[in-house]
Design a protein around this nucleic acid. Sequence first.
DNA 1: GTCTATAGACCGATAGAC
DNA 2: GTCTATCGGTCTATAGAC
Lengths: 185, 185
Amino acid sequence: MAKRKDVTKEQIIEIAAMMVRTRGCNGFSTRQLADEVGISSASLHHHFTTKDDLIAAVAATCRDRVNRSQGVIAAEIEGFALHLSHSSQALGDDALLIAMLAADFPTLPAKSQDEARQLIANLRGWLSRFVAQARTDGELPEDAVPDQVAGNVLAEILGSALLQRVALPGTLPVPPMTWGWQRVD
Amino acid sequence: MAKRKDVTKEQIIEIAAMMVRTRGCNGFSTRQLADEVGISSASLHHHFTTKDDLIAAVAATCRDRVNRSQGVIAAEIEGFALHLSHSSQALGDDALLIAMLAADFPTLPAKSQDEARQLIANLRGWLSRFVAQARTDGELPEDAVPDQVAGNVLAEILGSALLQRVALPGTLPVPPMTWGWQRVD
DNA sequence: GTCTATAGACCGATAGAC
DNA sequence: GTCTATCGGTCTATAGAC
């Protein structure tokens, strides 16, 4: 009967992810996170010795989530644009989390940078493979470069997540994803 | 003959903008900025009393630049997708700067938040008007919603600026902008 | 695994001399 | 307009008791 709260790493990571989304990796302190979790700063550092370890764990957990959601999405949806629209929805809060990791990337310590890079590479790679399949199916021009299209799609997903929070209160709702493809000569 | 360096606000803003792009608003200190400029922390605070004043000035300066570049772009380019591709290029480093302001937005103090909001609203508004014109010219479907398309375009510009820095060294070059439009029912 | 207490560095900002 | 010096606060991280 856990008298001593026995907070789990998973709980900490979840709240840390929330703080990365809302404040960025450099926008919150380990103390503030500890307060939010409900433990002391020292207890937090018992679970994650350094902030680097913590952010890296947040990124790694996100990567697991994203990789799992990919299978679900691929099995359910048909059609390129529609598929990508649903991909964005499936990412949910992770779109913003990934965007913040990308924004803070140059200031992240080693482990965190490695995890963030793998997370984004995984996601882009998967999008790229889907684009390649869509091209094979005739949904895209033959000369479409899958990795480029995947980059464009991922850029819009991340950028859209950021823009949502800057909107003036009481104006423009979030633009739904409506991708397409067009040659630019 | 400025013996006392007589650093101008413009010089400070320029270097501050660089630090916002590379480290984010919460990723550098006023001390580090002062060192980079080559003056003392006290001198920096003489020009900008608070960090809020500084970031707000960076955003305001960016907005001026963006607003000026809009006229240039509109006069030179024809064609929707091609135009937008050039818009992205014209923004240059400002795309990343705007993306970082959006990422840090929730943690910014009052003045900075106001300036960042105006900057993004200006840019999106201009993109929206361009989209409306392109629709009138028959380059887009009649039921395209200009503000939504503008949001999608801006999202990709900002997201693309972020993603460029996360690329693994020695891999994927930046995907060029190749927007298009397609109904999603 | 939790805590209190604290180290040592850095933070934003100010005082006051020149 | 620049500087040195410093204030009071926060930062990440650790020591050591329970």
